[in-house]
Amino acid sequence: MGRKLKLVGIGLIAVLIVLQFFQPEKNDTPIDPELDMLELLAPPEPVADLIRDACYDCHSNQTIYPWYNRISPASLYLYKHIKKGKEDLNFSEYGLLDKVDKIGAFADFCDVVDAGSMPLQSYMLIHKDARLTQEERETLCNWTEKQALKVMRE
């Protein structure tokens, strides 16, 4: 019994070691100021800070990684989240969206922040800066609604 357990333990460690050689690609493309939402719209500094701190890790081309991203399978977990986040909305490619999608993105932005479904709980657990207060959520919502209406009138 003891020997079997030891073997399983060694096997597991071996798998973990091998896993370290398979690190996913990092989300690290230079920001294009012609396309990036914060660059293009230049919101007031407090709003820009909130969006950068609470959203940009998964919704832009530039993730600021935590230390444990060096370790697989944590890195794989982050990779998947970021990929999904960017598929839903990538602020670094905001400039590529058509008018309707820009309006929709801002409306959805406000809704998920207001409903508390974003930022994700798991993300806020680690990232203190992303824990938005009710007031900050309202600030974001007010700003995004204004932007949506502005795009509409363009």
Binding site: V100, I103, G104, A107, A148, M152
Partner: peptide, 12 residues
């Protein structure tokens, strides 16, 4: 749904 939401949903 508010106007901006309707527009976004139509796009979706």
């Amino acid at each position: 749904y508010r106007l901006t939401k309707q527009i976004g949903l139509l796009g979706d």
